[in-house]
Design a protein around this nucleic acid. Structure first.
Lengths: 138, 138
DNA sequence: CTATTATTGCAAATAATTCGCAATTGTCAA
DNA sequence: TTGACAATTGCGAATTATTTGCAATAATAG
């Protein structure tokens, strides 16, 4: 597990357990759903319970080590936050691959939305759907 | 119920029932969650079952009369599609109000994402969070 | 190494969603 | 308008998803 994440856990009085480490590991390269995370972790050598996966994710979200992303396809996926700067995603609706997208000027969107709605905008989420390069050529 | 929606239902061999009419009515001005729709419909004079609300929504989504929107706050909301052109939303995280937002150039976002990811982009969803004008001054 | 206490696994509880089926009710054609 | 037919509903039961209580286990500070 990433040193910074360890630090945040410790400072909160939380322990570094193999289960927590594995959950973070499972989503280290790609956002995954609860079920997928459970599958992945279960394939390793350490034993884990679904309830523990839920508990780990709930904790990580609270500590902002992880965030949920939703593509409107019915399931939430969980993504590591630490190293990333704010970004968006593209989901391949054929193979399920998720690719990060960094747009030129995300803040501009918020400014425009703020002007049009008269809200004080505090954040946004933007997800793209499409077909990835591999699937396009398959 | 809107004439166009009636037509689409009929053409598919589906019937216009009070339950379906009420479900559409419940979301006619604002996107609502399943539970909220059920509450709203239940307050009227016609009797409805939660299962029927689920069934109506599933059907409407299949017929593209309605779409699910998700703000990442854990619940899906359902929104009428017919009259709307493609647009985005702002959710007031204090009072829950949802306001439509039409941005200058949504397609530009897709073009940029397409270029960066090498996906063939087929759609996107963009939701803003913030505090609405009323709540700001309350 | 030990004591302390957070965390886990398990099983049971709760919540969310779906399904089977008999009763009801739109709809079409006469 | 009426009757027949098939779609739809309500209800309860079945799934599925998520949460919780608790005794056993294990991480960590000293």
């Amino acid at each position: 597990m990433d040193e910074n994440n360890k630090k945040i856990l410790k400072e909160g009085g939380y322990r570094i357990t193999p289960q927590r480490t594995q959950v973070l590991c499972a989503i280290s390269t790609n956002p995954q759903s609860v079920e997928e995370i459970y599958e992945t972790v279960s394939q390793g050598t350490i034993k884990t319970d679904l309830a523990s996966v839920y508990r780990a994710l709930t904790l990580f979200v609270k500590l902002k080590l992880v965030q949920a992303v939703n593509f409107g396809d019915g399931k939430d996926r969980y993504e590591i936050l630490n190293t990333h700067k704010h970004h968006h995603h593209a989901l391949c609706t054929r193979c399920g691959k998720i690719t990060d997208v960094e747009l030129q000027d995300g803040k501009k969107l918020e400014r425009e939305a703020s002007k049009k709605t008269n809200y004080r905008i505090t954040g946004h989420s933007l997800e793209f759907f499409g077909i990835c390069h591999n699937c396009c050529n398959a």
